[in-house]
Design a protein around this nucleic acid. Structure first.
Lengths: 231, 231
DNA sequence: TCTCAAGCAAGAGCAGTGCTCTCGTTTCGT
DNA sequence: ACGAAACGAGAGCACTGCTCTTGCTTGAGA
């Protein structure tokens, strides 16, 4: 089973974790661009080549950090949803959005790693798609709560979008109306547009009261997916 | 004056342009991360140190490319606005959005350079703020056309956003109602959320018919800023 | 219990990077 | 015509990711 497999196996996972930890520290401090394998090894008191026993390449180490980042922001979103269970859907929605934004502002380099320019040879490994979808799933779940009985009135879909909307709904959430699925994906990406502009500095000298601005925008996104102000 | 200032001055601007050109080519081909001063110099038949007579550092070269990219996407937006002059505001708005998206899809690396993770030591030089605001100005201009007479009904601003909205409108467009200024900034960032998710691959295996999806989303953004379907 | 393959850390080394400094040469303003 | 400024070439520094070889250590099977 997964019991204690000798000292060697235990050391391996410990060292692997230590490498990932130190790499995470350097990522948070300096950003992905300045993350150096040699510096990580140096800080851990080993030589750089030894590090390749644990991660085949720098990109693999980065991938591990990417997965961690997706998991962290996903967990933040899930926690916000859990803490607001039972409240009005629109309030839950804005709470989830706020949690995502708060995590991003607190971890700008990790955020940039996952929602900024794709840094490596541009191939998202299979391991990332699960963690990457956690935030989206929370948004879907939050909206689903308001649509269990009868779908709130959403604007009708334009003709050309009907097939895509049907496919999207079938893939994402077969129990939701296609128009809602489309709105959810839109709102999902637009949420990260708001967050990215703030984290990446595009609001510099433009938006001052970021909290109020974001709160209003997140609320509006929630209304876009059919969540009513009072329900 | 700015006449032909000897062969040397002419050569200088020519070589500077050649460097920027070659760097742009490498940027488009491989992305900002793999843009190498030495490779640029090699391709131009000079030695790497000679290149420092024209650009003090790699970051300065990148900054020049950033300015070019902002100008290119700004020009695309302006052209779309010009070509649709006289049409319905909502149609002009979606045309501008489509132009931005088309440019981004055609120039993913340039797009990532300006709207992805901030690459260098994270200090946006003064020269970039002008070109960087061109797209935003086009969006403002497009919306202004629909609000000259009387402001279309926008949802009332939440209490806490009033001061920020007033300041924002005063800064951006004093002739526009504060609620519209807020909506414009929101829509601006959300537009790039949609584009970034597509260019950066977050719609992979999720959105198939990107054209239809984006068209509907852009249209909805236009309605958010008060542009009516028929007007 | 002994043995031997596998796991491991260390070091040297390769190819590449940004950047600096020096050294002759060319150009241009005075 | 002279001298200062601009210029290109080259060597070199410190750094990077990564590979290969060399021994040592561990642990599982005979």
């Amino acid at each position: 089973m997964t019991t204690v497999r000798g000292a060697r196996a235990r050391a391996r996972i410990e060292i692997t974790a230590a490498i990932k930890d130190e790499a995470g520290t350097q990522l948070a401090a300096e950003g992905a661009a300045k993350l150096s394998l040699r510096a990580v090894a140096r800080e851990l008191g080993m030589v750089s080549s030894a590090l390749y026993r644990y991660f085949p390449s720098r990109d693999d180490l980065l991938t591990a950090l990417i997965v961690d980042a997706y998991d962290a922001v996903g967990a933040a979103a899930e926690q916000a949803a859990a803490e607001t269970a039972g409240q009005r859907p629109l309030d839950r929605w804005t709470a989830v959005c706020r949690a995502v934004r708060a995590w991003a502002v607190d971890h700008p380099h990790e955020y940039a790693l996952i929602y900024g320019s794709p840094v490596p040879g541009y191939t998202a490994p299979e391991d990332t798609i699960g963690p990457a979808s956690r935030v989206g799933l929370v948004l879907i779940e939050t909206a689903r709560g308001a649509h269990t009985g009868e779908g709130v009135a959403l604007p009708p879909l334009p003709e050309g979008l009907r097939p895509e909307a049907a496919r999207l709904a079938a893939d994402l959430a077969p129990d939701l109306p296609p128009a809602l699925a489309v709105m959810l994906v839109s709102a999902w990406s637009q949420l990260f547009g708001l967050v990215s502009f703030e984290v990446f500095g595009h609001f510099h000298n433009i938006v001052e009261d970021r909290d109020a601005f974001f709160a209003a925008a997140a609320r509006r996104l929630g209304q876009d997916v059919g969540l009513l102000p009072r329900g």
